[in-house]
Write a protein that binds this DNA or RNA. Structure first.
Lengths: 330, 330
DNA sequence: CTGTTAGCGCGTTCAT
DNA sequence: ATGAACGCGCTAACAG
């Protein structure tokens, strides 16, 4: 592979001129410019970016820390990040952490060792978080309340409250929940909204109505069992994401329970599949792609050394009513 | 940020010794080793990987070219690639091409310019492919027949044939297809299998029975219309992926058509959702994660300069029978 | 507009 | 076991 020196030799000029021809062509004479490009073509010269990055002390790369790449919500956020990164000429390194601190640490090290210029964390902040960290430019996307470093997120408390408010307005009084893992910040925030709405409606909180899941389809199916066994079933179930809602509906329907006439079900996220489930799912639409874009924009401001005046952005959600909810029977 | 020189100065040794302490600790005296690590801790020294990569002429990075990251099948393949890359100490750069040649070109350039050591292409080979390319170590994953560079894939022709064979064995004679875009190699291969199976069963091919989709949920819903309008409907529909099958089932059910008693429906891929659709989908399970792992292993062999004896790997699929298929009525 | 020079941080000789 | 010196490919500073 030829280097900038080979090109210079071929043309009969200095390497500086070749370098300039590539980055500041206006500072090079037309004649040289032409000969240089001819030489580049002839020698199939490709600038060595490793050298450039080394020289410029910039990798032009950002890292995304994602708990699970094979999750549609996350991959949509990533799509949004990628949009902005491309327009900035940055590459996106994928850090599939699988909820392992070890892996997360290694990806963060990429920033400490200059292989990447910043990181976007898709996991919400909690006690065991490795971020924020010295020397590591970072932004949190899709997190929760009280994130101690720059963040872009939705208001989970309010979103959950909207769902329950709506169910209450339909006449539901006994509203079950299929939650995520209990220490998960999303679970905490959304449960908080659930309780606020109940309280506003004068309904007493009943821990029996909370079934634990882990955001997977299977856990939703599994959790539906908890309600099926109850003698006095809830008339509605708020699921903390769409996957669990779809799993739960599968479980309920298998027992001959009709949705929504026997039990209403709601989701959270509005993934593409929510429209196509049977019945179509009433859910909260998160602006997944926007979350990605906004967080990337914020990160680039940080990387460029600008002090963004606003370090927490809360994006609006949309409550989407479909066919999985209705008023309870009498 | 401190450099290797600062550490050397702190310890009172040469940079060479520090360098060795990090990469060949056995060549350094215990005493120095200890003092060097102490100095590293004190100065918070982190080796500059940009410099290392430049020096070693290796970025320790591979690129994945993926048409659409927000697609569950692809993200599962990526998961598999990531598994292997991590164990090799390589980073994974995400190239979300959105079917744009321009973007694809830019990502391939990363390899030409040394920012990455190799590339895994998730889009099947076709006329307009930018790969194979000189100076670019590449592997194709999830492709089709006649891929002109190293590849890992399934046998799409045979998989489609299996589906149709099964439908025929149930007694179906009029079998519709919801296909992908017609130039798409997957469409071509799967259609070939469909035709082979028909031919083996002595059933004449009828182009009227092919409805065109584009692998999205919506296109499946849309294509179902084509069959609903027909006076003499097929008794089974083979969809070229699970998304379209789920979309189609939505459309059919909306018109009061029962699945499978009125029309059987099959998918392709076996994504997680296939189990949870209503009815659960009969489909071909692609070993998505395995495809990723195997292709990554093949790529690393190429990168390491080993000449793999086998440059095309065909992985087995599994035909999974669920509730969306049955014998036709009467 | 162009060339010369120097150095980014590291690893690797080749000595000792 | 250790250090001095060099150079990877490129760009910025300076001089002309």
């Amino acid at each position: 592979m030829s280097t900038i020196r080979d090109v210079a030799k071929e043309v009969g000029c200095s390497t500086a001129t070749v370098s300039r021809a590539l980055s500041n062509p206006e500072k090079v004479s037309k004649a040289n410019l032409k000969r240089i490009h001819a030489a580049i073509d002839k020698l199939e010269y490709r600038p060595n970016m490793l050298s450039q990055q080394f020289r410029n002390k910039q990798a032009n790369t950002i890292v995304i820390l994602v708990p699970d790449i094979a999750n549609l919500f996350f991959s949509t956020v990533i799509s949004g990040i990628e949009n902005v990164a491309q327009s900035k000429g940055f590459n996106v390194l994928l850090g599939d952490t699988r909820d392992s601190s070890e892996r997360e640490k290694n990806f963060i090290k990429l920033v400490e060792t200059k292989q990447a210029d910043g990181v976007i964390q898709l996991r919400p902040y909690s006690e065991d978080s490795l971020l924020p960290k010295k020397f590591v430019t970072a932004v949190n996307a899709c997190g929760c309340e009280n994130n101690p470093y720059p963040a872009v997120r939705i208001d989970n408390v309010d979103a959950a409250k909207q769902i329950v408010d709506y169910l209450v307005s339909l006449g539901h009084k006994k509203i079950g929940v299929i939650s995520g893992l209990e220490e998960n910040p999303h679970t905490i925030d959304r449960l908080k909204g659930y309780k606020q709405a109940l309280s506003a409606a004068g309904i007493k909180f009943d821990p029996e109505l909370i079934a634990k899941g882990d955001f997977t389809l299977w856990s939703g199916l599994n959790a539906s069992d908890h309600f099926i066994r109850m003698s006095n079933r809830p008339t509605a179930i708020m699921c903390m994401n769409d996957e669990m809602a779809i799993g739960a509906m599968k479980g309920l329907k298998a027992k001959g329970i009709n949705i929504p006439s026997d039990i209403s079900v709601t989701g959270f996220d509005d993934m593409e599949f929510a429209k196509y489930s049977d019945p179509a799912l009433t859910t909260i639409a998160q602006p997944a792609e926007k979350l990605g874009e906004k967080s990337a924009e914020l990160l680039f401001q940080l990387i460029e050394g600008k002090n963004p005046q606003q370090t927490e952005h809360i994006l609006p959600v949309e409550f989407i009513i479909r066919q999985s909810t209705s008023a309870p029977k009498n």
